[in-house]
Design a protein around this nucleic acid. Structure first.
Lengths: 235, 235
DNA sequence: CTTATTCCTTGACTTTGGTGAAGCAGCGGT
DNA sequence: ACCGCTGCTTCACCAAAGTCAAGGAATAAG
């Protein structure tokens, strides 16, 4: 049922990484895959949770629709990342909606299967907790970013996450459209544009969906600056 | 070891709510309590996690120190709330620091005990997942607030959470100092002051640590307003 | 009672970023 | 090639909130 390459991706996911091969394989044998087209909804906030998902390919966005209709992006995930773990066991409903932003394939693992298996194999619970913890950590990091950094700094951080190099220069392909990047970083598309402009003075060039960082260390420096520091340089 | 009133509080916590009495009691018998003075540190971000905590009395703040030394408050918990669940099982280190903001008492549950017991009683895993999920949910709500509401609206939301009434008027005692409230809501103390002033036009009065809401429904209305709506009223 | 300290508020100023409108480029369809 | 769509950028404007600085109120200490 599951192709070898898919299996390899799933095995890398935090959710399965700590499990012995034999156990992970048993679970994966009972999982299914499905393709989604850009724009499709995986689930809506408020839906009763039935599955845990692992992204095999493409990009998925998790977001919340506020009471006033505004959208707040809570996470954007790609290959090897799972979502929906915690909620599938805590009862209740998905607190967010999930939408496919580029054509994608997802692995579905039915929560009921995991639930049952957990009875005999408590290490599954630990694995799920590890996944949930990773999400917690990601959300905490986002909160910190939002509270302590300016828009341009958040953009810098976003670029640096995509850049594998530690130093020197680096060219990145933006993984999804700028409107979504803006949402993920908690700003309007217009502000993202301005942020990119501001980063030009830090050696960042954007053309189409390619970003070039002239000096990774310099950009990291900029990102880490204290909010009140910039004017100090004017002295 | 555990007083009756403490036991009652702990039993109410999400962490234990779903467990059968017999199991919860077994765990609680092996837990310890400790008193803390205002300002004490419970753990620091980066510490290896050993315990799960349940607040029996007082207020605890969870926060992160950013690379630049700024503080980002991630949560403020009181009686009946637990913290540290997910990390205690996911390995790694606490992603946040915990500090006591008013004299408090905490229940410590050693993670190793729960780990061991989980082997025979998988429902413990589900209980921990439920707790972790609650935190996830709280963080998602905070992100949404931060991205979609103005400062004054967040303050309104904060007050409404403390107000038990659904309608009419209501007086609240602010649970901790304003500097911390400001931190929790992602703003500077000065901005909190100004936000309070702004809410006066919505029938909110602050004196010392007492807040009076003249009309709860009116304030809720204000909180739910779209960001772009206010000026529309000027037409 | 006086002083020091801490916390809170206010004021003036500046920066950031949201808003609405306009323009432009790229792309798909006819 | 032409149209219309969508996504991105730019502009001008303004509101929200951070910063620095000063002053007030309550509390603790001498």
């Amino acid at each position: 049922m599951l192709e070898g390459s898919d299996l390899a991706i799933a095995r890398e996911a935090v959710l399965f990484a700590s499990l012995p091969d034999e156990l992970a394989d048993t679970i994966l044998q009972r999982a299914t895959t499905r393709s989604y087209r850009r724009g499709e909804t995986v689930f809506l906030q408020g839906d009763p949770p039935e599955s845990i998902f692992v992204v095999l390919d493409g990009w998925i966005k998790l977001f919340r629709i506020t009471s006033t209709g505004a959208e707040a992006v809570v996470g954007v995930f790609t290959k090897g990342r799972s979502f929906g773990e915690a909620v599938a066991f805590a009862g209740g409903a998905y607190p967010v909606s999930a939408e496919v932003v580029t054509d994608s394939r997802l692995l579905h693992v039915r929560a009921s299967i995991l639930s049952t298996m957990m009875r005999d194999r408590p290490e599954i619970a630990t694995a799920i907790l590890a996944s949930a913890f990773r999400h917690l950590h990601g959300l905490v990091a986002q909160l910190e970013q939002l509270k302590a950094h300016t828009g341009a700094q958040r953009v810098a951080e976003f670029l640096l996450e995509l850049c594998l190099r530690e130093k020197g220069s680096c060219t990145i392909t933006l993984p999804y459209d700028k409107t979504l990047i803006a949402g993920r970083l908690g700003m309007q598309p217009q502000s993202l544009s301005r942020a990119f402009n501001r980063l030009e003075t830090q050696g960042v060039k954007i053309s189409h969906n390619q970003a070039t960082i002239a000096d990774v260390e310099r950009l990291r420096e900029y990102m880490l600056q204290d909010r009140s520091a910039p004017w100090r340089k004017a002295e």
